[in-house]
Structure formats: C-alpha cells, structure tokens
C-alpha cells in the first residue's frame, strides 16, 4: 500500500521533554487518529512534519518526498488546521480567500465560499467577531479549499458543539472518499476518532506506545472488571495495565476472546479510546 506520510525515528529534545524515535506510516486513503494526553508530543510531531520545528533528527517523507528539501511542492498538497495558529484576527474570510489565491495554485474560491455558507460564516466579518467554534470552522474551510491530498489536523473539532462536530466529521469522511485523500488527525475527543479513524497511534511521554487499526483495538481489547481476589489469579503476561478503583479492579487486556477462554471472569467490557488512554497512562503494570 502506498504511504502518503512516512516518519522514521523522529527525535526532538527539549529541556523538559523528548520525542523518542517516533516511527509510523500513513497509507493513502486512510484516516489516522493521533491520540495522547496534553504534552505527550502530538503537536510537536505535527510541527516537525510541517517544518515548524527544525532541529530534529530522523526522516520525514510526504508523498515520497523529503519534507524539508521539497517543502514547496509538498505543501501545495497539504491542508492544515493547527491548534491556536491561524490568520490575524483583524482579517475577514474574504481577505483569507484573496490571500490564499496568491499562495495556492489550486485555491478554489467557490469551494471556500460554499463552505462559508455551509458553516454560516459571514465573508465580510472580521475573525475576531467569530466564536471559537466559528473560527475552527473557518480554519477547516481554509484547509480544505485548495483540494489537498493530505490533511494534517491538530485538534480540529475542539470548541465545536456535538452537531457541528458531526457536520465536520462528515466533511472529513467525504474528503477521503473523493480522491483517495488521507488525514492525520490529532484529537482529544476520541469518540470522533472511533467513528472515522482507520488507524490509531497512541503517543505517551514522547513515545509511541500503541499503533493499531481502530477495528483491531476496539474489537480485541477489553476491560476486565473483577474483584481483588479474581485479579490475583490473573497472570501478569495476560494483561497490559490495571487500575484499582473504589469497588473493583479494571484490567486492560489485549485479547478479550483469549482472556475469556483462559479465565472464569465474566465481566469484560468493550473498550473505548478514552478508557484505553486512561488505563495506559494511569494504570499500573
């Protein structure tokens, strides 16, 4: 399968944080969910992909090209939504369209205006008059309106209400269905990812701790809920992490079926990405 994004051994060191050997591929036509708690390294990884940070080691290829050497060609085909980074707020959506017309070869003013209508954004209003959700929608409209082949989205649904989130998720879905486009999507709202992501990459403390297809994760992984007595019968090799709550033990297992066959513990819940994140980060080994 052709990869639109390939990251190999990406390392970046700060005084109090380190990105360690980040390696993953995003295949063409797929949506990759990028999850992890605040400060885990999601935005740093995205910034390295886009060359916003420079002094890192490792290799990043986009559309098979080096992200730094072939910067200009690559970026013609990338659409981005970045957390808290955008046009100055004294500009209007019309100003953005005029600007982008002079930046992207494929800027589609009609498509941009259609998105503005769809999102009920007034083209002549300054960005500073928009609510947080409206700004996010404008950022998404801007990212989509030059027919990119790859979308890199850092928290694109933050600040949106559930209806707007569903609307935006639908747009992302139709985006990848159109021309075999791909999306790298970092989000705290993991329920969105459960619906649309084909792959999940979980980053914790600057390291990738999990990289699986969404189906594999949600179908195979499970949370065993048991008493302390039952927990003590479980072999350490048969679970990933566990957490002791007030009344029971929550145990993260990699394969629900195998676990069920081996142990006589009946309560095994389906996992959500939120559960997975909490147990992976806060759980004990």
């Amino acid at each position: 399968m052709e990869n639109v994004l390939e990251i190999k051994n990406l390392c970046k060191k700060y005084d109090n944080f380190e990105l360690k050997n980040i390696t993953f591929n995003l295949p063409k036509g797929m949506i990759m969910g990028f999850i992890g708690e605040n400060g885990a390294g999601k935005t740093t990884t995205i910034k390295a992909i886009l060359d916003i940070i420079k002094s890192y080691s490792g290799e990043i290829k986009i559309f098979g090209l080096d992200n730094r050497k072939d910067d200009k060609d690559i970026k013609e085909d990338i659409g981005v939504v970045l957390d808290d980074m955008f046009f100055p707020e004294i500009l209007t959506p019309n100003d953005i369209s005029n600007t982008m017309k002079g930046i992207y070869k494929n800027w589609d003013s009609k498509m941009f205006n259609d998105y503005l209508k769809e999102f009920s954004l007034l083209p002549n209003k300054q960005i500073k008059t928009f609510s947080k959700g409206m700004r996010k929608k404008l950022e998404i409209a801007t990212a989509l309106s030059h027919h990119p082949k790859l979308l890199i989205l850092d928290e694109p649904t933050s600040g949106l209400d559930p209806v707007a989130r569903a609307e935006v998720i639908d747009i992302f879905q139709s985006f990848i269905e159109k021309d075999d486009c791909s999306i790298l999507l970092s989000s705290h709202i993991t329920t969105d990812l459960e619906h649309i992501a084909d792959y999940i990459i979980f980053i914790n403390n600057g390291e990738i701790v999990l990289s699986k297809t969404t189906n594999e994760l949600l179908d195979k992984y499970g949370i065993v809920k048991c008493t302390e007595k039952e927990f003590k019968t479980i072999n350490k090799n048969d679970y990933v992490k566990y957490k002791k709550t007030k009344y029971e033990y929550e145990v993260l297992v990699e394969n629900k079926k195998d676990f069920k066959a081996k142990y006589n513990i009946s309560v095994i819940d389906k996992i959500t990405l939120d559960d997975l994140m909490v147990l992976m980060i806060k759980g004990e080994e």
Binding site: K47, L50, D51, I52, D71, K72, D73, K75, E76, I78, V80, L82, D84, M85, F86, F87, P88, E89, I90, I103, Y104, I152
Partner: peptide, 24 residues
C-alpha cells in the same frame, strides 16, 4: 503594528505550513 497582530494569532508558525512560507 502588523507584526503584533501576526504575533497574537501565531501567524508566523501557521505561515510556515503554507507553500514557501518561511521565505514569503
């Protein structure tokens, strides 16, 4: 003063994600 607006909304970082952003 236009630099202040750029700075407030982190335009400089965003501009790098655009084609030829650093030079332009």
């Amino acid at each position: 003063s236009s630099f202040s607006y750029d700075n407030y909304n982190k335009w400089d970082a965003y501009s790098i994600s655009l084609p030829n952003g650093r030079k332009s």
